[in-house]
Design a protein around this nucleic acid. Structure first.
Lengths: 238, 238
DNA sequence: GACGACTTTTGATATGGATCAGTATGAATC
DNA sequence: GATTCATACTGATCCATATCAAAAGTCGTC
């Protein structure tokens, strides 16, 4: 089932079989995209929403010198731009990081879902609020943590989210973010990311090279990240 | 009408008279709260949502040393914790800043709205996504701007939002945030807020004292804030 | 197996904001 | 008129991170 990872591992994911089928039937098409591919530009009117099946997608905003700030990173199972349905246009760009596979759902199909399936609608709403909860945690990350904590937090979050959809285990996962990408997500420079990664490696917490992450000590990493996963509303934390 | 400020000034606010009445009728009660009043604690199960009528409310998370990071500031007309309806519990605390007046709406009332009024439901959904859009802008603010830009940005945002609901004009508005409160919203120290405010004052951009804000040069302030108000989805910017 | 384009790594120096340690001001209370 | 408490302000010092500049490793490709 194409949409099977949607809300997988989340506490509020009690979709009925009928609802799962409705969602599955609403998929208009499946496509593969290359890496570094701009999908939606800020301000554009959007008519379809994207369910990420494989790979990583980011959302970002540029400052006046053209420097990016990532505002979200999406993993398989995420609805990337479902908020584009009630909002009609987005306030940020959306792009793939590495190569990705996506399913698209047209907004008129979503419209009809909201008119016929109130509970499924609330679950879709919930999934956009999960993104908001992650946004809040990112605000916390940037506002209160130093560079080490920020990097550590990002890895803790990605690991936890990937584990929920079966794409991480034993502290290991694969992703396509480079050190400059991490920098753009953490509000620091690429050079400094490199130094922080070295420190984390030397302390036996985390290694990350060529897209292969290995969290050797999740407890220790979570400690310096002040990472508390409740905001991800996973099954395990209610 | 108690709920008349809800979505006031927003591009997507096409509520019918019937919908406005449904919303108005769903209000269970109106209450006044003192300043610095903790309303909801993180993790608590919530059964009602709050519409802010007067005053300011903030949402925040604490770091391990008990330092706050504000993740949102609410102004009259905002649904403070509507996301608590699909989410059931919150990942952050909610508190008043100064004294406030609120209306409460029970979740079972919202539930019945979602079952009977799909369009109004989408508008409620939209209003929670506005919060998410502001979260994203805050991520940008913290990730890419220095202390001056962050303070300037916060004042630009508050001015724009207050103007939408008729509570700011000619560059002036009143609010209850102290300098340490601003610090908690901007991820800097209270001491540094003070210095930044002096610089902005000396440059003829902004004065803020005792809760009275006067933006003397909105263009100039917006420039150092890299402030572009589209993310607020106001009527004027479509 | 050499070339170019990313990526990762390193070193030297500069700087923004934190931190520490206060003083000043004003409103509320007695 | 004195006392307290919150808020606003200031100066000195220090450190985390930026910035600038470049080297070294890695991968795809012709």
């Amino acid at each position: 089932m194409i949409s099977s990872k949607f809300l997988m591992g989340r506490g509020r994911s009690e979709l009925t079989d009928e609802e799962k089928q409705v969602l599955e039937d609403s998929i208009a098409g499946v496509r593969s995209l290359p890496g570094r591919n701009l999908m939606v530009r800020a301000g554009e009117r959007v008519e379809v929403s994207t369910l990420l099946l494989e790979g990583f997608i980011c959302r970002y905003m540029d400052d006046r010198q053209g420097q990016r700030q990532l505002v979200a990173v999406h993993v398989p199972g995420d609805f990337v731009d479902l908020h584009g349905f009630p909002m009609k246009r987005l306030d940020h760009d959306v792009a793939t990081i590495g190569p990705a596979k996506i399913a698209t759902i047209e907004h008129r199909t979503l419209q009809s879902i909201t008119e016929r399936f109130p509970h499924l609608t609330r679950m879709l709403w919930f999934s956009t609020l999960l993104d908001a909860a992650m946004h809040r945690e990112w605000i916390f990350r940037l506002g209160r943590l130093g560079a080490e904590g920020r990097i550590a937090h990002l890895f803790c979050e990605l690991y936890t989210r990937l584990e929920m959809v079966g794409l991480a285990q034993d502290g290991r996962f694969t992703m396509a973010m480079t050190q400059p990408d991490l920098a753009e997500a953490c509000g620091i420079t690429g050079v400094h990311v490199n130094r922080v990664l070295r420190v984390l490696r030397e302390r036996g917490l985390l290694t990350y090279k060529g897209g292969e992450a290995h969290i050797a000590d999740l407890k220790g990493l979570a400690a310096i990240a002040e990472f508390e996963p409740q905001y991800l509303y996973g099954t395990r934390d209610g």
